[in-house]
Amino acid sequence: MGDKGTFWLPESASTVSGDVDSLFYLVTWISVVIFVLVVAAMVYFMMRYRRHHAGQVGAPAHESKWFEMSTVVVSTILVLIVFTWGFRVYLKLNIAPPGAYEIQVTASQWKWDYTYPDGTVYAGDLHVPADKPVRLVMNSIDVLHSFFVPQFRVKQDVLPNRYSSVWFEATRADTFDVYCTEYCGNQHSGMLGQVIAHPQEEFEEWLASAGGGGLSPEEYGERLFGQNNCNTCHSIDGTRLVGPTMQGLFGSQRQLVSGESVEADENYLLSSIVAPAAQVVEGYPPAMPPSYGSLPQDQLDALVAYIKSVQ
């Protein structure tokens, strides 16, 4: 990691974050000055005009129209300066430079999926080229989400019925946090990810191997298990989380809430991912969203292979 940020702000790592920070500090310092003046006047008056005996009444005070007017005028001027600056930064945040590298983002409960121009679908972490503007075109398949990278100072809500977009240019190759900032249900705080900015060549190499080529199905499945945040609800070591553990799952007998009992074979695993509400295991809430049904078939195969291997 580069610089660690300041008391107020996290490290700054995009081409717009410097502008946002200067504006932030300008407004903060104006606020601090006003605040100190108000509190100082308050404390001074409080001491200076303390009541000394019970019958004391305030002396007539002349109201200065001039003073009131000047506070209004000064604050209006300050406000207009700040507004204009804020407006310009906002435009910069909103208008992506032409020729930006475009990635489709699909948000769902509770994961991020990224589709690259070559058709590669990659879940979990967002790999991007550094020093190049990247534009994300985002859509949700269920509820509202919001894409937030604190180090880049960018944020945009993701909606189910229309596309929204956000752009950034990472100023160095590094790893940054992605948060979902629009409440989206049970695992809202688990809907995390990272932006991994690579130098251009490294990025291209990564993209070529992103589809899981060269990995065994189990290895690919293990990676997908983490990328799709399966592990926030399903442990692999027997711990009870929101959903059942994967340990020793394959081949066991499952007692369903419907009263039936089924064996956890490959078909059971697949249908539990694709249609989780159909066969709910007794003792667990039907909390799993159906959004995983949209995973490509090869990824589903890899996940099933991986879950089989967790013993």
Partner: peptide
């Protein structure tokens, strides 16, 4: 009342900060 003046001034000034378009993008929903 004096506590109010102290706290509300902070609340009001940070409200103005949140109203600044470019800054709000970072601070929104945090």
């Amino acid at each position: 009342a004096l506590s109010f003046l102290f706290l509300f001034t902070i609340g009001g000034l940070t409200g103005v900060m949140l109203g600044v378009l470019g800054v709000d993008v970072h601070l929104h929903d945090t």
